[in-house]
């Protein structure tokens, strides 16, 4: 079968709609992952052993199981207990939770990287726990995390095609429906690949820039 440019132009608008959903899902998922990651990182440092070990286990469990199955779980099991979510919302929650467990590790490394002296200084200045975190620790911990966080958002972006399995009409799903309608797979699937490759190559440049701007976390 030959590559057909006319067909490419014909399906392009449909695929662009999918691109829009893909980007929305990635952005919302990233925002959720930032907060979930921070919550997990903080809960794991809780002085209460029960809280920290439970959080640790849950995070470990989410990280050890496939995102696809988690998406099915959110999409199919939650309605049984009365939580009926639209596909995109279920997808964003899945992405956010899954990658939140990864970003939690980034936060952990970032927080551990803040020198002990800063904690002691905060104590010496009689700051409350809340003030210590928001004024002293996090402002120093977060900038060096930027490259690592961005790395996970790029990884998340590359996993968005999984949302097609729970009927979100993102890029991959649009491509599949186009392919099934015309029974031509070469152009749609290749275009999806080219699209992901382009974004990834651009993001490599952005990552380099972030690393120069903010430095890296020493592991």
């Amino acid at each position: 079968m030959e590559w057909d440019w006319n067909f490419v132009w014909q399906i392009f608008p449909t695929l662009l709609q999918g691109v829009k959903i893909t980007i929305i899902a990635t952005l919302l998922g990233s925002v959720l992952a930032v907060f979930v990651g921070l919550a997990i990182a903080l809960l794991r440092r809780s002085p209460n052993r029960l809280v920290s070990t439970t959080t640790g286990f849950i995070a470990e469990f989410i990280r050890g199981t496939p995102l696809l199955v988690q998406l099915y779980f959110i999409f199919y099991v939650l309605p049984d207990i009365g939580i009926l979510l639209p596909p995109l919302v279920a997808g964003v929650i899945g992405l956010g939770l899954h990658y939140g467990t990864y970003t939690a590790e980034v936060y952990r490394a970032g927080i551990d990287n803040v020198p002990r002296g800063q904690w002691e200084a905060a104590k010496a200045c009689n700051l409350t726990a809340r003030q210590t975190w928001t004024r002293i620790i996090l402002p120093q911990a977060i900038p060096p995390m930027m490259p690592a966080l961005a790395n996970y958002f790029i990884a998340m972006f590359k996993e968005t095609p999984l949302l097609s399995a729970i009927t979100v009409l993102e890029l991959m799903n649009q491509a599949k429906s186009v392919a099934n309608t015309y029974y031509r797979y070469i152009e749609p699937i290749t275009l999806v690949g080219v699209f992901f490759l382009t974004i990834s190559l651009i993001s490599v440049v952005v990552l380099r820039w972030l690393e120069q701007r903010y430095g890296r976390i020493e592991r």
Binding site: M1, K158, E159, T160, P161, L162, M172, K176, A179, Y185, I186, I189, T190, V192, G193, F196, L197, S200, L201, V204
Partner: peptide, 22 residues
């Protein structure tokens, strides 16, 4: 390395299964 890390596993799988036969 850049190609396989840059495109998603999902796209690669579909490519291998649906496009390679053509």
């Amino acid at each position: 390395i850049e190609f396989f890390r840059g495109t998603s596993i999902f796209v690669q799988l579909f490519f291998a299964y649906f496009v390679l036969p053509f």
